[in-house]
Computed example of a mutant assay.
Amino acid sequence: MYFYVDESGHTGPNLFDETQPMLYYGVLSSKVNVDLLAEDSLRKLRQRAKVLRLHANELGNGGLVPLASELLALQRRLNFRFDLYRVAKPDHAIICFFDQVFDHGNNPAITWTGYWTPMRYVLLLKLAKLFDKDIAKQAWEARIETDSDKADALLTSVCMELRSRVGHLPDARSRQLISDTLEWAEKNPKKIYYNTKKKKDKLQITPNIIGFQSVMHGIASRLKTKKAKAAAIIVDQQSQFNKAQKSLSEYFAALSDLPAANGPGLPAIDFSGMPKIPIEFASSANSAGLELVDLHLWVFKRTMEGKELAPELYRLIEPHLYRGRTDEISLNAIAARWERWFEELPDPTPEQLERSQSLIAYDEERRLRAIQGG
Rank of each mutant, 00 (worst) to 15 (best):
R366V: 13
L331V: 08
E186Y: 01
G26F: 05
V122M: 10
E305A: 12
D327S: 15
N208G: 01
D17G: 13
G218R: 04
V51Y: 07
P311Q: 11
L42P: 00
P259A: 04
V122H: 15
V65Y: 01
W112Y: 11
Y4R: 03
D171E: 07
I269K: 14
L255Q: 05
V34F: 04
F82D: 10
S284N: 03
L154Q: 14
K89H: 06
S358E: 12
L203Y: 07
L169A: 00
G114H: 02
P278N: 04
S287R: 03
L182M: 01
V299Q: 04
R81C: 05
I233W: 00
S157H: 14
M160K: 15
W338S: 00
I178D: 09
V101Y: 06
L309V: 12
K224D: 01
L248W: 09
A185S: 04
R46W: 11
L67N: 06
K243M: 06
H217D: 08
H55R: 05
R143Q: 10
T349R: 00
R369F: 13
Y362H: 12
E328M: 13
E145L: 11
A231I: 10
E70T: 01
R302A: 12
I94W: 02
P259H: 00
F281T: 11
E7L: 04
W184H: 03
T19N: 14
L266N: 03
H104R: 14
L248M: 14
E145F: 09
A153R: 14
R355M: 13
L316E: 09
E250C: 05
L71R: 02
G374N: 13
G289Q: 02
A288L: 02
D152L: 11
Y314C: 09
A285D: 07
S330G: 05
E354I: 03
D103M: 02
H55S: 02
L74W: 10
K126P: 03
C96S: 15
K229A: 12
P259S: 01
P311H: 12
K226D: 15
A93D: 10
R120A: 05
I205A: 01
K276E: 06
P275G: 04
N188P: 01
A254R: 06
R337C: 09
L266C: 03
K137I: 15
V32F: 09
N188Q: 05
E7D: 11
K197Q: 11
F131C: 06
S284C: 02
T196L: 08
L309P: 09
A232S: 15
G105S: 06
L162I: 02
A56D: 00
D103L: 06
R315I: 11
K229C: 05
E354W: 03
V122E: 14
T146N: 11
A285L: 04
Y121H: 13
I317L: 12
N61H: 02
L59V: 00
D270H: 01
R120P: 01
E339F: 09
L290P: 03
K202H: 04
K276R: 13
D257Q: 10
A220E: 10
Y362A: 15
S157L: 14
Y2I: 08
I269A: 12
A56C: 00
V101S: 05
D257S: 08
D132Y: 00
M304P: 00
N262Q: 06
E354C: 01
F342R: 07
R77E: 15
E328R: 08
F16I: 14
N14V: 09
A268R: 02
L28C: 10
A68M: 01
W184T: 00
G9L: 08
D171P: 03
I371W: 07
R53H: 13
R325N: 10
A136M: 02
E312A: 12
D103E: 10
